[in-house]
C-alpha cells in the first residue's frame, strides 16, 4: 500500500457548519451492499434540485466547474455529525476528496475517516477563517500537506496542525487494523478466560 505522506490538491470551500451525514449521503443510497460508487451521491440533496438527480443546482459549489477535481474540502465546525454511516466517508473518497479541513469533526466520523485513510485536519476557527478568506480572493487555491511535518501550506502561508501518533500512523501506512489487533490474539483469549463479572456469557 502506498504511503500517504504528502498531498497537493485543489481546495473546495464549503461555507457551512454542522454538515451532517444525512447531507453528505442521503439514506436512499445506503441500500447498496458494497463500498463502491457512492461518489455520485455525495451531497445529493444540495447538488440536485430533483429526486432523480437530473436537475443540477447551479448555485451549489460542487456543480461549479472551477472546483472540478478538488481533493481538499474546506468546511466549518462539527463536520460529519449525526449518523454513524461509513457510507459518508466512502462517498467523499469516491468523489475524490483526500483531505478535509474543518474546525471540528464528529467522533464517529473521525474514526470512520481514519479507517479509510481520509485525512482530517482540525484547525482553530481563526485559521479556518484565514483559509476561507484566501479562497474568496481567488478561485483556484491549492493546498500542500506534509504529514510528517504536520504542515499545511496555502499561498505560501504555513499552518501547523496537531495529530496523534496513532492517527498519523494509520493515515500514512493504511495498515490493516484487524491484522494489527490479531497480533494480540492471545491477550484477547486471556481476557475472556479471566474476566468475571465484566465478561458476559449470553445463554
Amino acid at each position: 500500500m502506498n504511503k500517504f505522506i504528502k498531498h497537493h490538491g485543489k481546495i473546495l470551500p464549503l461555507q457551512s457548519s454542522n454538515i451532517d451525514t444525512d447531507i453528505i449521503i442521503p439514506k436512499q443510497f445506503l441500500q447498496k451492499i458494497n463500498k463502491i460508487g457512492f461518489g455520485k451521491y455525495l451531497f445529493y440533496n444540495w447538488r440536485f434540485l430533483d429526486s432523480e438527480g437530473k436537475i443540477k443546482n447551479k448555485d451549489f459549489i460542487l456543480n461549479n466547474k472551477i472546483y472540478d477535481n478538488s481533493s481538499i474540502l474546506l468546511t466549518r465546525k462539527n463536520f460529519g455529525c449525526g449518523s454513524s454511516r461509513e457510507h459518508a466517508v466512502w462517498a467523499l473518497i469516491d468523489y475524490g476528496f483526500k483531505v478535509i479541513i474543518a474546525n471540528s469533526f464528529s467522533d464517529i466520523f473521525f474514526n470512520n475517516s481514519l479507517n479509510n485513510r481520509l485525512l482530517l485536519i482540525s484547525l482553530p476557527e481563526k485559521k479556518i477563517d484565514i483559509i476561507f478568506n484566501i479562497t474568496k480572493k481567488q478561485k483556484k487555491v491549492f493546498g500542500y500537506i506534509d504529514l510528517l511535518k504536520q504542515e499545511l501550506t496555502i499561498e505560501k502561508k504555513i499552518i501547523t496542525f496537531n495529530m496523534s501518533e496513532a492517527q498519523k500512523k494509520s493515515v500514512i501506512y493504511g495498515l490493516d487494523q484487524i491484522d494489527d489487533t490479531m497480533y494480540y490474539k492471545k491477550k484477547i483469549s486471556t481476557y475472556e478466560e479471566n474476566n468475571y463479572p465484566g465478561y458476559i456469557k449470553y445463554s
Binding site: 454511516r85 461509513e86 464517529i108 474514526n111 470512520n112 479507517n115 487494523q177
Partner: peptide, 10 residues
C-alpha cells in the same frame, strides 16, 4: 456507542 462498518468488521 455507535461505530462504522470498518469497526463492525473489526
Amino acid at each position: 456507542f455507535g461505530i462504522g462498518t470498518s469497526e463492525v468488521e473489526h
